[in-house]
Nucleic acid binder design. Structure first.
Lengths: 107, 107
DNA sequence: TACAATATGTCCACACACGGACATATCTTG
DNA sequence: CAAGATATGTCCGTGTGTGGACATATTGTA
């Protein structure tokens, strides 16, 4: 796996496919906005705007791709997201379209 | 594979990941701009702007991800593109990042 | 011979997304 | 007790990309 293009690719994805990438991260493990931000910034050494992150999470919830559970940790509230069945279908369909693995019967 | 989200996902990809999708199509078979446009429009029933398509193809060539061969068919010239070794590495790295399959040694 | 298709290219008004500031509240640490 | 971290949210000027027109040349067809 090449290291040369990795950072620019990650920024490409975060910029253009934030919704998909969030779905993927949440599918791996239910989590919340702030943790995703810190995690991605640590893993890839890039910045995620929380001004884009939180509205996108809310959008995913509106679309029914993730469900939201309010978790109280002391007085601080976390909105823990989990991928719904619809979200999983969406994500899998995305991968299929991207890699051209859709059967011809789909049309 | 779900049909529900397919069209919006394809538009999502064409809009935000045109370069990647072009790489994938060209990797499957060396081809040229106009054919890609017609093919995608027929396959997915969506419009591709050639005003975005051709500059993107030229950009991919500049970056060295595709090579270009001028093919004369009668008097009409075609710019037939093929994916280079660099382009294949880029594409594979992209899939890896997107699906989170990068080893931890990559950092 | 005129129109549609093939084939590639540029350009511009406009809309949308970005970067970053502003905002609020709680908890932890020095 | 103040500063930084946790946690989520809005807003706005600016810059980037979109949609579609304009452009050109050849070939096939009605």
């Amino acid at each position: 796996m090449s290291e040369t293009y990795k950072k620019q690719i990650v920024q490409h994805i975060i910029r253009n496919l934030l919704d998909i990438q969030l779905l993927r991260i949440i599918q791996a493990e239910p989590t919340w906005g702030y943790k995703i931000k810190k995690q991605v910034e640590a893993d890839f050494n890039i910045k995620i705007r929380h001004g884009a992150l939180y509205p996108t999470l809310n959008l995913l919830e509106e679309k029914g791709f993730v469900s939201c559970t309010l978790q109280q940790k002391g007085g601080r509230a976390r909105k823990v997201y989990a991928v719904t069945a619809d979200g999983q279908v969406y994500l899998q369909t995305f991968y299929g379209v991207l890699q051209g693995q859709l059967g011809s019967n789909d049309l």
